[in-house]
Structures are given as C-alpha cells and as structure tokens.
Design a protein around this nucleic acid. Structure first.
Lengths: 212, 212, 212, 212
DNA sequence: TATGAATGAGGTTTCATTCAT
DNA sequence: AATGAATGAAACCTCATTCAT
C-alpha cells in the first residue's frame, strides 16, 4: 500500500486497462462482426469479468466506438509520420509510403479496422463518417500531394489527382480486408511481397508521363 | 373441377417464394450483417409471416447460404457470358468486360454479395470457400485469359498473369463494397463513370508494353 | 363416380377415417405424451394431411379425448364379456379373467391407454374421472364379485373386497404401464407368462382361506 | 475488508440455488409432464427469472436430468439405510422395509419421480436406464435378500426370488404413481394405512410356506 | 372431402446490462 | 476497482390452427 513500485504498477495497470479491453475487442469484432461478438468473450479474452467492461465503457456500442477510435489513432499517427518523410522524387516517395504503410497497418492488429468499418458502416454511420474524414481523407491528401509533386515535376502524366486517388488506394485496402476475411478461411492470395512489388510497378507505370 | 389457371397461380407462387425471400434477405444481410438481421424483418419485407420462412429454409444459416448461393448464380452466369464475348484486341476486351461487369453486378442487388462475403467469411467458411472457388477463381481465369492474349500479341508487357490478376480486380471489388457500405453513410466516392474511365486508363497504361 | 363398388369403398373409407386417425394418434401419444406429440406426425402416420385431422377433430385436445374414449370402448366391452363368463369356482374364475384380460388388453395397442391416463391425468382431469368411473370402477366391480363368491363359498378367507381390489389389480396395471415405458428402453421385466403365473399363485395364496 | 458472514450468505445462496430450482422443476414436471412444463413457470415457482435457470442448467433437458438425478439420490440413500436395518425375521423385515419406504418416499416430493420416469422414459431412455440400474435394480436386490432369508429359514415357501420381486413391488409403485396422477383428479383410492396393511397381509400370506 | 401454404402466439434460449457485494 | 449472480427484452424457432383452393 505504501510501496511506490506496487502503486506504480497498479496505476500503470489501471491506465492500461482500457487498451487491453479494446485490443481484445478489436480481435473479436474483426473476427465475428459487431453483433455476433459477445461481451462475455471480450471480457474473457482480456482476462477480466463481464462487469468490469462497464467500468470503462457505457455500452457495447461505446466499446465499439472506442475500439475504432483507438484503432484509428495509429492510422492517423502513421499518416502524420509519412507526411514528414516527403522529400525525394514522387515515385520514390510513393514507394516509400506504400511499403511503410504496409509495415505499420498491413501487419498487426489495426489492419482489422478497415474490414470492421466496411462491414459495420451502415450500422454505425457516425463512425463511418469519422473514419472517412479522419483517415481516408488524410490518406487521400497524402497521396494527392505526392501526385501533385510528380505531375509538377513532369514525372507523372497530367491527371486529376482527386479522380485517381481512390483508385490507387483501393488495392491496398482490398488486400488488408482480404487478410482478415478470406485469408482466414484458407482462401489464399498472392504472397504479399509480390503483391506490393507488382502493385508499385503497375501503378507507377500507370501514372508516369508518356515522355518518360 | 379445378381451374388450371388458378392452380397454376398458386403453384407459381410457391415456386416464386424462395426467391422473394432470399431477395428480401439479401438486402437486409447486406445492410446489417448476418447476426443483426432479424428474421421477422426479412419476413416483413417479403410480405409474409415469420413462420413462412421456415417452410422454405430450415434455419437462419440455411437462409443465409441460400441467399449467397442464389446471389452467386447471376455472377456465374455473367462470367460465362463474358467469356463468350471474347474476340477483339486485349485492351478492347478488357474494357468491354469491365464495363459489362459493372452494368451487371455493380448496379443491382447482387452487388451486395461481395460485401456480404468479406464481412461474414469467418463466420461461414464453407460459403467463403465456395465463393472463392466458384466466383473468384472463375473471374480470375477470365482476366488471366485476357492478359495472356495481350502478352502473346505484344500488346501487354510480359508479366505473370497470376501475380497481377488479384491486383487488377481489386479496384472493382473495392468499388462495389464501397457502394454498399460507406456510400450509404453519405461518404461519397468519385462518380462511377469517371472511376471506371480512370480505372481503365490507369490499368491499361500499367499493363501495356513499353514498346507501344 | 357411378360405380357402386368405388362408392362403397369410399364410404367405408370415410367411416373408417376417424379410427385410423385415433389409432395413429394413440401410438404417438403413448410414445411421447400429449404435449410432445405433433399433429403433423399423427397425420403423416395416418397417411393424411395435417388439415384433414381438423375435418374430424376440432382440436388436439378433442383428438386426445377421442383417442382415449375410443381406446376405452374395447376395455369396457372386454369387461362386459368377462362378466358373462362368470360361472365356476372363484379361483378358476379369477384365473380366467386375468388371463383373458391380458390377452385382450396386455397385448395390442389399447394397452397403451392406462399409461396415457396416468401420465396425463392431471392435464385432463375429466378424462381421468371418466376413466375412473367407467373402467376402473367396472373392473373393480368385476373383481369384487369374484371375491364375494369366493368368500361366500369359503374358498377365500373373509376380507373386505373393497379394501383389496385396488391392491390385487395393481400388478396387472403396473405390468402394462411397464410394457409401454421402460420396456421400450431395453429395461426388461420377467417374461409375461411367468409374471402372470406367479401373480396368480401369489394372489390366490394371499386370498384363500386358512382352512384350505 | 469484507464481512465473512455476508459473503457466506451469498455463497450459500449460490450453492443452494440448483436444489431450489430442481425442487421447483420436480413439482411441475410431475404435474404436467416434461413437454408441457414451461421454464418460465419453473423459474417463477423458484422465485427467480427465466434467465437464471440458464446459469445453472444448459437446457431444459439438462434440467430434467438434474431433477431426476437429484431426486434419485434420496431414493438411493434410503435403499442403503434399509439394507443396514436388516436383522429380524423375514416377515418382520419385509414389513419394516415397506413401512419405512412409504414414510420416506410415498410422502414427500420424491414420490413424484417414479411417475416421471414411467411417463417420460421413452423420451429420455438414458435416464430410464439409469433409473433402472440405480434404483430398481438396487430395490430388487433388497427384496431378493429378504426373500432369500425367508426361504432359507423355512418361513417362506420355496420360490424364485427373481421371478417374484417385480410382482411384489408393483403395488407399492402403483400406489405412488396413483398418488401423483388420479389422486389429484379426485379419484380416490383406499386410505393408505389400510392399503399398506392389506398389502402386507396379502403378500406375506402369498409368500409364506404352507407348513406354517 | 382433402390439401398444404400460411399464420402468429408462445416456447426455449441468448446476452447486454445492472447491482449488491 | 472488480466481481459475477441476476435480470428481462428480444431473438430464433415450433406447431396448433386456419383457409383458399
């Protein structure tokens, strides 16, 4: 009780709880969807009792929102980080961003968030809009900036960045969704390193200027 | 003793019922997911009572499977039809296939099937594998054939068709998933005609041979 | 339509229907109890459709009552028949009645009635009272008459026939209940011929006068 | 930090619950049969809510099995107790066992178990076999032992104990079944003290040796 | 007379949520 | 802060009953 170490550990524990809970919940929401996930399972996976969940989240919906919000933070942070690493040619930049994105999102549990969003969007429109505004929009801005740089430098052909950005991003999103759905049923995809290599090749060929 | 027309009408009703029910169920499963869809709503939307569903499907799971199976038939038929329309240059062919696919799948309710599959794959692995084998695999074969033709004719650069096919298809799948999730929350995408035009442009530029 | 044979067969069929239905129902009611028996099964076993049952019986309860009423008729008829065969010594008479009873009730489907009565009495008190008045009471009168004859002739010790009649009958009822419950689960009893022989021996020894 | 008495009370409650529930269920199963008993009624009679039942029993069937299993324990214990009280003459012993059995089983709620078994045997064959092995078989052994003693001492006539034991027991079982079925519909039987007195008289006369 | 599609009340079961401890 | 027993609304599913044919 007076031992500072213990108290610290406790405090740390207490602060860590919500994250432990959302981490457990993320796995299950991604695996089964919102409706089919039982709070009892979430609690069990986090090693606490059912009632404890309610000390941190008012309801299942609030837990879900927290899961997504918390899952989005790394996505956002990653966006910021990437923006800072922007010097270089547009192609190199594009390549770097994509590879780094896969490292940070593709692997690891936050990769489940996009599947969650697309699956549950219609049941949680506010969440969907939040995701659209904060993640998709920022991601798009990032790519648009790269596109602009390439177009300005003549490296890319002239095109409307807004019209292409969705298109260019979609194979990345699709891949991460696949990973958390069909992949888990034994339906395999091309190995990820090849997928990314070919993605970069195909996309950069598609974007580059004819002159080149 | 009995009017054949009337009897026929009755019979016709009974034959039509399953499709009416799966149609109603498809909408709701796509909208809310499997778990959150109530059979009573499905019944109400089809204009029948709860119990009637059980005259045609043994359980909610069986209804789900029937929805997907029945939803897949048009997808398969469409695949067959496209294969037959194959003469022409690889680029033209690709263009034709993509546009026709959108017409047939992108619009209309079967477009909801892919979202359903990706959302529920982990809860229905058999269904997922069935979809993979019957739809994805066939779709891939179609594109691979087009790729081969283009490579052989020198129209496309040499590449491994198997490595690219997932990649090339993914913006189309992503688009149809988007339509049934974020689109419904007011998160808009590029207009579809522009999306498809740019998709074709980007992809064909990415595939074509350097010599061109 | 004009063929008298057909019409006759039809008419006979029509008259026979209710019995065919109650026969099918008796089996199932004995096997599963009233509540767990589904009318659809009854109809199926009788080879008719579910709706047809309602042409003959207003409700499941009415069907049940008809089953019991109809099942009781042979029991009553049997009682009448036995009464007529009454000349002879009391012991011989007792023996004859018991053996004949087993032949008529113990074998054959009406043997299921007593189990049905004891199982469902509390859900169908009127039926139970009807059974008590018409079957048990008459059966008791029969045995009481035999007892009286034996006591009067000095063959049986003096006792109160009313006090013993339940007692004397119970092993017979128990046996027929057993046959329709535990017997069907592989829980065997003594072979019936031995059971009846020992029953007669034990009971007649128990009843006869000490002088003998 | 926590009052041990209070905690104990809680714990005690939790331990007592299953018995409270099976006790309530026993009454209703005996009264209405398995199928016609509603879990809501069971819960209400035990003073808990519907959901609480499922904290202790996985399904209605499991509840039923628990009811019988728990109901059997006293029957078994009683059997054991009687075996130990065996000194004395065979007749006296028989008399003592029968009277004690009625005290312990005939009165009180476990008397409903046999009716339950005979009514539901065909729907729960495992239970029926369990009852046959654990209760009937042990009961039979008890009576057989008494018979053997009587035969050996010359008190009873020579007979095959196995052949008679079902017979001798059946009036007791019949009586307890009657109590829980026809008795409740106002169909009366001989008063129980007379019934038992006459049962003992009749049976012992039936068993005793002629020499006596 | 006979059918069988359709109904909907009512049952079993689940699970988010509460609250005494 | 944490528990877990208890709740009860709501879901899935059944089946007695009806009725158009």
């Amino acid at each position: 009780m007076h031992c500072p170490v213990k108290e610290l550990r406790w405090r740390r524990r207490k602060d860590a709880r919500p994250s432990e809970l959302t981490a457990a919940a993320l796995d299950l929401f991604v695996e089964k969807g919102f409706a089919a996930t039982k709070l009892e399972e979430v609690a069990a996976r986090a090693g606490v009792s059912k009632g404890t969940l309610y000390l941190y989240f008012d309801s299942k919906e609030e837990l879900f929102k927290a899961v997504v919000r918390e899952g989005l933070l790394p996505l956002l942070a990653e966006g910021e980080a990437l923006v800072d690493s922007m010097p270089g040619s547009a192609s190199e930049l594009f390549r770097a961003i994509v590879l780094r994105w896969w490292e940070m999102v593709g692997e690891g549990p936050i990769g489940g968030i996009p599947k969650l969003i697309f699956s549950e969007a219609r049941n949680f429109p506010e969440i969907a809009r939040f995701y659209a505004d904060e993640v998709i929009e920022r991601g798009k801005r990032l790519f648009v900036a790269v596109f602009r740089r390439g177009i300005d430098s003549g490296e890319f052909r002239p095109f409307d960045p807004q019209a292409l950005v969705h298109l260019v991003i979609s194979p990345l999103i699709m891949r991460v969704i696949w990973k958390h759905s069909l992949d888990c049923c034994g339906v395999t995809n091309v190995p990820v390193d090849i997928y990314l290599k070919e993605y970069l090749e195909l996309t950069l060929r598609g974007l580059r200027s004819d002159a080149q």
